[in-house]
């Protein structure tokens, strides 16, 4: 499950990136490259763990993730700003 603060809790879709899951549920999230190098999708990870299939190049802080190229490893809680 993906709990999106100030929005709702949604089911993560297998084989989709976190960004795609969020989009499927019509929640506004910013993106440009969709490949982990621009940082437009930068999001706070409040709880849980994610993994990357492509190396994220964009700058992210320790508590941040790039939904365009990450996949949840557990139930997670995130905050889109």
């Amino acid at each position: 499950m993906v709990d999106i603060k100030h929005h709702k809790t949604v089911q993560h879709q297998p084989n989709k990136s976190l960004l795609e899951t969020i989009e499927v549920h019509n929640i506004e999230i910013q993106y440009h490259c969709r490949e982990g190098y621009c940082g437009a999708c930068r999001t706070k990870l409040l709880k849980g763990e994610v993994e990357y299939k492509t190396d994220p190049l964009a700058f992210i802080d320790d508590n941040e993730i790039l939904p365009c190229c990450c996949f949840p490893l557990s139930s997670i809680e995130i905050e889109i700003d």
Partner: peptide, 16 residues
């Protein structure tokens, strides 16, 4: 624009 996004990433890294 694709290149510029990458350039921006590099200056963000340096600053951070």
């Amino acid at each position: 624009a694709r290149d510029e996004n990458l350039h921006l990433t590099s200056t963000q890294h340096v600053i951070n």
